[in-house]
Amino acid sequence: MALESGEVEKIAHLARIAIRAEDVSEYRRHLSRILEFVAQMNAVDTHGVDPIAHPLDAVQRLRPDEVTEVDQRERFQAIAPQVDAGLYLVPKVIE
């Protein structure tokens, strides 16, 4: 199961990772090997085996519905690149 160059570019775009054109074939080879590994596992007969969603054999713990956090905006915003009026500022997003 080999990936096309276009698919590598699409995956990179979805992950917002910039890749150089000359590296595409290298990534193609690496990613294709991962898919080959998955294909190998797919070939195993898993009839009668329940799918797992998590490697730990445990269930989710729940917490009571209580407000336990206090406002730490000052501290969080101290490490933000830009803030104003309590808001985090980001480059303009237009829908």
Partner: peptide, 25 residues
């Protein structure tokens, strides 16, 4: 007021772990 009720988990800071609210369930 903006961002006064956004904690480390809500901000997705490294090392945080979400724990599910029983009441929501």
């Amino acid at each position: 007021a903006p961002n006064t009720q956004a904690c480390a988990v809500d901000l997705g800071l490294p090392g945080v772990l979400p724990v599910l609210n029983a009441e929501a369930v």
